[in-house]
Design a binder for these strands. Sequence first.
DNA 1: ACCCTTTGTGCAACTAGTTGCACAATCGCC
DNA 2: GGCGATTGTGCAACTAGTTGCACAAAGGGT
Lengths: 181, 181
Amino acid sequence: MSLPHAILTALLERPSSGLELTRRFDKSIGYFWSATHQQIYRELGKLEAEGLIRTLPAAQPARGQKKSYEVLPAGRAELARWTSATQDPRPQRDVLLLRLRAAAVVGTAGLEADLRRHLELHQRQLAEYQEIEKRDFPPDRDAPEDRLRHLVLRAGIDLETFWTGWLTHALTEFAALPDTD
Amino acid sequence: MSLPHAILTALLERPSSGLELTRRFDKSIGYFWSATHQQIYRELGKLEAEGLIRTLPAAQPARGQKKSYEVLPAGRAELARWTSATQDPRPQRDVLLLRLRAAAVVGTAGLEADLRRHLELHQRQLAEYQEIEKRDFPPDRDAPEDRLRHLVLRAGIDLETFWTGWLTHALTEFAALPDTD
DNA sequence: ACCCTTTGTGCAACTAGTTGCACAATCGCC
DNA sequence: GGCGATTGTGCAACTAGTTGCACAAAGGGT
């Protein structure tokens, strides 16, 4: 049950229309919570029905007509409740590790190329994060919200650093492996 | 579409019944792919219907009667195909990071306790992995499958190391923060 | 005036994963 | 020999996320 809360957070940061939200999910928010525009529209409908958000004044009713939403007090309260409630981490699921384990049984043929591709993707992502860090978090900034946002970005950077490191190591291991087929 | 392949891998490592699979998913496999017994039984049924696995000889038909499965050649082929096929990483989703971002907007009240709890969980997990590493991967072992399995375990260890480190850092940041409510 | 692209909203159907429950066999024990 | 715990299999209903498509409005070019 996290998508509605992701949307509430985004709308609190800035009231937006469905498409604007979609774009923001493709960028910053999507770094740790992704969603398609279909999901977002559906969820906006629900949130409005529940009275947690509402459309901004200049409300055109028509389809294909821009419609912006803002968060109501009830929405903010719900978000605060959710943020502070204890939650268990959701179960791990990582396809790549699963494939590696499968490769131990059926052979590593073909896997190396995809590892290389993943490495590139993670390197690119890491570079992007570091760019953002340089741009948005110069060493002097330290308002509380900035510190929190920076913390989140650090998690992203450290995670990508882990993946690039691990994948690099995995590839050198692969090079040393006999060609199991 | 990874659960069937996780099951195929597990069955290739050792033919098992539904409940045995469930236990193994709770342990080693569950470290990067988790599933409930209900999911597993359902999937076993599908895999059998598709001709990728079959029940072992001493087949009791009755309910509440143990039933073991083994992988058929078609199943092994499918697993090999899947392992080597290129796949995009699935979208990131991390609730804790999302909550932190929400906290930047609605305040950090209550979050700290849960961060502490998560830290403990990750520390415990890390200790468990390190235990396994010491037990199962003494420095001399290096058959190809062992190297691959070790690689997977290293990923687990490094990930947990990242999380404990990051959470520790997050908690010191929290301590320095004014009490936003 | 017409068409094509972009922007924007949305429904429907499907796949994957979760939760809650039911029920059969077996084993130990009192 | 009946009773409760454990082992084992499974269905049904639900929630979350994905994929494929439809359609309306606005702007730009020719």
